[in-house]
Simulated assay, not measured.
Amino acid sequence: MAVCGHWPPRQFRTVNLARTWPVGAFIGGLAMAAIDALTVRDMASELRVGRSTVYRWLATGRGPRIFRLPNNEIRIHRADFIEWVGRLEIDRKGS
Score class of each variant (00 low, 15 high):
Val3Thr: 12
Cys4Phe: 10
Cys4Asn: 05
Cys4Arg: 13
Pro8Leu: 07
Pro9Trp: 10
Pro9Arg: 13
Arg10Gly: 01
Arg13Trp: 01
Arg13Glu: 08
Thr14Leu: 12
Val15Trp: 07
Asn16Leu: 11
Asn16Gly: 06
Asn16Thr: 00
Asn16Ile: 01
Asn16Met: 05
Asn16His: 12
Leu17Phe: 09
Leu17Tyr: 05
Leu17Gly: 14
Ala18Met: 05
Ala18Asn: 08
Arg19Gly: 13
Arg19Trp: 02
Arg19Glu: 10
Thr20Gly: 02
Trp21Ile: 01
Trp21Gln: 05
Val23Met: 14
Val23Arg: 15
Val23Cys: 15
Gly24Arg: 06
Ala25Lys: 02
Ala25His: 05
Phe26Cys: 11
Ile27Leu: 14
Ile27Thr: 04
Gly28Val: 03
Gly28Tyr: 06
Ala31His: 10
Met32Thr: 14
Ala34Glu: 15
Asp36Ile: 04
Asp36Leu: 09
Ala37Ile: 02
Leu38Trp: 04
Thr39Met: 04
Val40Gln: 06
Val40Gly: 06
Val40Pro: 09
Arg41Pro: 04
Arg41Val: 08
Asp42His: 09
Asp42Thr: 05
Asp42Cys: 04
Ala44Val: 14
Ser45Trp: 10
Ser45Asn: 14
Glu46His: 02
Leu47Asp: 02
Gly50Val: 02
Arg51Cys: 15
Arg51Glu: 15
Arg51Ala: 07
Thr53Trp: 08
Thr53Arg: 11
Val54His: 02
Trp57Ser: 07
Thr60Ile: 06
Arg62Thr: 07
Pro64Leu: 03
Pro64Tyr: 00
Arg65Tyr: 02
Arg65Gly: 06
Ile66Gly: 00
Phe67Val: 08
Phe67Asp: 06
Pro70Ile: 05
Pro70His: 03
Pro70Trp: 01
Asn71Leu: 08
Glu73Gly: 09
Ile74Thr: 15
His77Gln: 07
Ala79Trp: 00
Asp80Ile: 03
Asp80Gly: 04
Asp80Val: 00
Ile82Gln: 10
Ile82Thr: 12
Glu83His: 06
Val85Ile: 06
Gly86Glu: 13
Gly86His: 09
Gly86Tyr: 05
Leu88Trp: 04
Leu88Ile: 09
Glu89Val: 07
Glu89Phe: 13
Ile90Tyr: 09
Arg92Val: 06
Arg92Thr: 13
Ser95Ala: 08
Ser95Asp: 11
